[in-house]
Every structure is written in structure tokens, then in C-alpha cells.
Design a protein around this nucleic acid. Sequence first.
RNA 1: GGCGGCGUACCCAAGUGGUUAAGGGAGAGGUCUGCAAAACCUCGAUGCAGCGGUUCGAAUCCGCUCGCCGCCUCCA
Length: 470
Amino acid sequence: MSLQLYNTLSGRKELFVPLKEGEVRMYVCGVTVYDSCHIGHARSLLTFDVLWRYLKFLGYHVIFVRNFTDLDDKIIQRAKEEKSRPDLIAARYIREFYRDSAALGLLSPTHEPKATEHIPEIISLIQTLEQKGAAYRIDGDVFFSVDRFPGYGKLSRRRLDELEAGARVEIDERKRSPMDFALWKASKEGEPFWESPWGKGRPGWHIECSAMSTKYLGQPFDIHGGGHDLIFPHHENEIAQSEGAFGLPFARYWIHNGFLNINQEKMSKSLGNIHTIQEILERHEATALRCYFLASHYRSPIDFSEQGLDEAEKSVERIHETIDRVDRSVQSSNGSKLDAGVLEAFRQEMGDDLNTPRALAFIFEEIRSLNRMLDEGRVEGLLPRVLALKRLGEVLGLLQQKPELFLSRKRERWMRSQGLSVEAVEELITRRDKARSAKQWSEADRIRTELQEKGITLEDTPGGTIWKVR
RNA sequence: GGCGGCGUACCCAAGUGGUUAAGGGAGAGGUCUGCAAAACCUCGAUGCAGCGGUUCGAAUCCGCUCGCCGCCUCCA
């Protein structure tokens, strides 16, 4: 089954064919480490985590690079505010990033380069641009000259004259053209700096991605991704730098995830509507957040809501419940094959520009079908389908933990928040069981009601009474 | 001003020319159960912002109108 991906560069879905057969080289813009990551970052991270997992599922060897921007104005600003140092600020938020990343269940990329560790490559790239006449220096600054790159604007579909007409940014009068951007910035007193042919300074924002992507992936490489907001100017500038320097295409497929809004507004510090990943994961399972995002197409904007997250949590719980039910009732035998039809149906949906909502819909159809088989006691042919389903769950990152672990974590969080103890609950259940055996239904129901008021639901199954929260 | 996107049931959300408009959550009825819960079954949009048009046929294409949003500035 083929994979079609929407390429921002062409503005349409294209058949994905990697440059080198069987191998995919992919670069995604990571975060600037000046503050905690929020759920908008989470959406982008999860989008490309799923793309990576899916490419591997298709059998590709994937080299995945995601950078850290560990030096820029915002980090310097933050350091000043805290009377700290930029490198310490960056180190702190990189640590936080790794913690969030683990909590979200992200697979680690092949490489996670930092801008500060690639200064020689950056300097060398700027020198190449200077030699080509695409860059010019003013005092200790070096700028890219957009007029020297005829393709400027091809990614964001803008023309230079339109950009200039609409430019609202305060223009640095020294620049030759208003859209020229900094490749290298002379450092001011007290700012971090590196020695360079242009004096003490530091890289501009865009140049690091050009330097690092090419170092690890070569040029051209297959996929370049990031948030929708990066199309202009960041990715446009990356193209200008890399193609301007080497005269080769830069990245072949440009993939951008849609934005996440809060109450139809962008998340921003000034609006005070930022939800950090950490904050959300205190109240919800990471799997629920993942499922919530997967229920929308990655390019569509999402208007974030906790209600939506609650609904997603219920639906993902159903997947876990079903698989747990299968695990409890069907003898697993080794050597079982994965059901080819299930895998193929999944590829069909995902192959259409990662249509995860449809892939998810298919999974729920399978869930219903499997439950019916179990209800009816028809277990022949069930195992291959369950194994295939588990595989799909892994590719989407939904089934990273065993179902019983998902259920018990949810239970623990509830018990902790309500100040309940497992022993007390199980004691009550034992008493109810005794009452039930004696057919003392009113006493049994009284205990069940008591537990229900504490958010605990009982299920009397043939194998005994099990309990769930909320 | 320029460029782009969106408006589908109570809520979320697929579907971009052709049999009965996915899926999830909520709701109603039923099977099962001591009663429940879970699971399963059934039922929920003669209609896809509105109005015109093209077509044998449109949620899907075209035009207009209304409403909402993003980018053009640091931003996932």
C-alpha cells in the first residue's frame, strides 16, 4: 500500500517515494528551550512521533533528527530575568523536555543535535554563502540577501513585493532588503559569544537547522517537518540558506501540523491560556491525549478542550478493556500470525496522508467485532486479529503499556485524589460477596451504592467481582 | 491589504462527484444480569452555514452571501 503525504511545497498530496530505497531521512524542528513545553508542542511532537512509527511500520529504515534550539534571544532574555546563565536555562529545559517526552511516550529520535554544539558547521555554512555572494556583513552582523535567491517564497507561496508591502516589522535600516535576515549576530556585552571570521557573535535562528539537518542527513533529504507557524519565515529561510549555499534542493517533502487553540484563540503568555504538558498529564493519561490528537487529522486545527480529552480517555479505555478481556479469556499461542486483512485496512487509511481519524474508526470497528466474538464464544480466528490490533496500537503509540497497567494507573490516580485505599475497597467488596452468596440483596446493593458514591463501579463477572473507577 | 483554511447530528470528528453521510462521547429502547455494570444489538443528520448554478447525479465542483480562524512579527 502506498503512502500519500501532503507536501506544503506543492500544496497537494503526493506519493511518498524516498530518495534512497528503503531509507527515509527526516528532520523536524524541535523546541527552543527557554520555558516548559505546552500541549501545542505536544501535538507537534506526537504528530511526528506517529509519522516516524508509521514509516518504520512500513519497513523503512528511518533516520530521524530533531534539534534543540539552545541559544537564542528568548533564552538570553530568560537568563537575564532570572539572573542566571543562558546555558543553565537551556540545560534545565532540556531536562524537562526529556521528562515530558518520556511521559508522552515519544520514541527517541536517531539524533538530537543542539545548536551550540554545531557552531563550526554553522560558521562554515555562512562562509559558503558569503563566497556565493548571498550574504553580506555589516559591522559584526551577517545577513542573507533574499534578492540573491530567486526561489524565495516558494514554500509559503509569497512574493517578495507582497511581503514588503505587508511588512509590519520594524526594519533594520542597514539591511539591503527588508526581508533579509540575520545569519550571524554580533554579541552584545554580557551575551554568550563564539569567535568567528566576523568577530564575537552567535548564530541567527534559521541557520542552525540548515547546518544540522545537512550534517546528519545530507542534501537533499526526504522529510522536513514542524508546526504550521514555521512555514514562514523559518522554513522559507532554511530553504534559501541551504539551496543558496549548495545549489541543490533542500528537503523534498514538507510536512506541517495544524495548530492547537484554546477557546478559539492561540495559546499565548499574554492571554494566560497556556497549558503545559506536565499540567495536563496530572489529570489525564498520556494515551488519552494521544488518542485525542489522533481523532483529528494532523493538519486540521484543534480547539483544545478538557471535555474532549475526557471523551478520548473513555474511548481509549474501551480499547484497553477489550484487549484486557481478550488477554484474560483467550490462550495465547506462540507462532500466531498477525491478521493480514487488519494490517492492510490500517495501511489503507494511514496511507492517505496519515488519516488517523479513519484508522481509529477502523480500530473501533475491530473492537466491537472482537467483543461480539467473545460474547458469542466464537474464538476461532480471534487471536491473529487481536495481535494485529495490538500492532496497530503500537504504531499509533496507543498501546505502549499493558492494558492492565493503563487501568491500574487510572485507578491509582483516582484513589489518590479521593484519599481512598485499595484495602478498604476490597474489604467492602468481600463483604458484598458474602451478602450476595447469602442472597442478601439489599445489603449487597447498599455496599455497591456506597462504593458508587466514591466513584467506584463494580462488575460481577463469571470470574468474580472486578472494580473500576469513575 | 496579500495569502491560506474552516463552518457536517447534543458535543468531538472523518468523508471532497455516484449504493443506506465513518468513528468516538452523550442519549433512548432492547439482550444479558438477583438487580446492576460491562459488552453486544437497535434507533438518532431525507440532510452537510445560507442562496443560486453546473451535472443523469454534489456535503463534495463553480459563483455570491453570512459567520469563524490562521499566517504575513518570535512562535509547535
